[in-house]
């Protein structure tokens, strides 16, 4: 005879429970491995034993993680076969009556709902969005073999404590392949924490610190592999005295002609061994080109190179022509392209 637990009415259809945990190990493995990411995730939060199994069976498969931070914090997981799920932490809805609830990490009875018919998008509701994201993040990182692919932050859409967000991002301590901070004015302390993070390999920062912001100790290290900094008015020659990056694009910098010349002269000594491309865009359009190239090339015999070469590295595909090519102290050639408001340097490795 079936017990009440074994047979029940499930959305008007009578289901007979399937004794999953009584399956032989190999079959249990096949069942869990045949589940989509969402099903495996849901199963993992049913019991610590199943969490262990999901973790064990999925460990060989690298799952890409993207985190989008805006009015909530969304985790998008994608398996190599293209199946994906999205789990979002958002602030508590006013009316939670009738909402489904689940245990997530150390938090119990967290309201949640699906926001698509395929149930690939689940939204979890928290009193503190960042704490919710921390719970979800640790669960996801523990459960799956994660390759942290993207982190996108839309500061202007964040309606909760941005300081907690930055603190959490910094504490993640996991390399992230591609990071994007959308525009928005930020507190100088938080901005400083962001630029000093050594977890962002490729990073675009549109955020704006105050006009007076400075960070004398800041250097682009080899952890800052490929960075674009918009609103880089705060960058000084001292900040560029040592560069470990491979690609740098700095916009709105406030270098004088003399500073630009000094920087280029340092660059051609080969002091920055990793550097392959740097783009310096100024906040003015009156660069004195002869002055900044003084001491780098013979001004009387400048030869322009109009051959088309392609800089095809670090995700860029840039046609390079109309440059002044300079032999560096290392024997490498760098191509310098000058505009009234910008200087580009390509170092051919």
């Amino acid at each position: 005879m079936k017990t009440l637990l074994e047979s029940y009415n499930f959305e008007d259809e009578v289901f007979e429970a399937f004794r999953l945990m009584n399956l032989p190990y190999l079959a249990l493995e096949q069942v869990i491995k045949s589940m989509s990411l969402m099903e495996a995730f849901n199963l993992s939060i049913c019991s610590p034993t199943l969490q262990h199994f999901v973790k064990y069976f999925f460990k060989n498969q690298q799952i890409k993680l993207q985190v989008h931070i805006y009015d909530g914090i969304q985790f998008r997981l994608e398996s190599p076969n293209g199946s994906f799920i999205s789990i979002k932490a958002r602030d508590c809805l006013e009316d939670l009556d009738g909402c489904m609830r689940m245990k997530i990490g150390n938090a119990s009875k967290i309201p949640f709902y699906y926001c698509d018919p395929d149930q690939n998008h689940v939204v979890t509701c928290w009193r503190d969005v960042v704490k919710g994201a921390i719970e979800l993040n640790s669960l996801i990182l523990d459960l799956f073999n994660i390759h942290f692919e993207k982190l996108h932050v839309w500061k202007e859409k964040i309606n909760y404590d941005y300081g907690s967000v930055v603190g959490w991002i910094n504490r993640m301590n996991k390399p992230i392949e591609n990071v994007y901070f959308a525009k928005g004015t930020v507190d100088d302390t938080l901005y400083s924490q962001i630029i000093n993070s050594e977890n962002f390999q490729k990073c675009r920062i549109h955020q704006n610190p105050s006009e007076n912001f400075q960070s004398q100790e800041f250097r682009f290290t080899d952890a800052h592999v490929n960075w674009q900094v918009f609103n880089a008015h705060w960058i000084t020659l001292e900040n560029l005295s040592d560069i470990g990056s491979a690609c740098l694009k700095l916009y709105d910098i406030k270098f004088t002609d003399q500073e630009m010349s000094t920087f280029l002269r340092t660059l051609i000594t080969g002091k920055f061994p990793n550097l392959e491309m740097i783009e310096l865009r100024l906040n003015r359009r009156d660069l004195n080109l002869p002055l900044i190239m003084d001491g780098i090339v013979d001004r009387e015999n400048v030869v322009m190179n109009w051959d088309v070469r392609v800089f095809d590295r670090f995700g860029y595909n840039t046609s390079v022509r109309g440059t002044i090519d300079v032999q560096m102290d290392t024997g490498e050639t760098c191509s310098i392209k000058l505009y009234a408001s910008a200087v580009y340097v390509f170092i051919w490795k």
């Binding site: 637990l5 190999l26 079959a27 045949s34 849901n42 049913c46």
Partner: peptide, 27 residues
């Protein structure tokens, strides 16, 4: 084994964790 286990895995489609506990008789 593959197809029969897939059939069992399909039982989880669209189910919440609470529903999965009942579907699979989980503790």
């Amino acid at each position: 084994l593959n197809v029969s286990c897939k059939k069992v895995a399909n039982m989880a489609q669209g189910k919440t964790p609470a529903q999965l506990r009942r579907v699979y008789l989980l503790p």
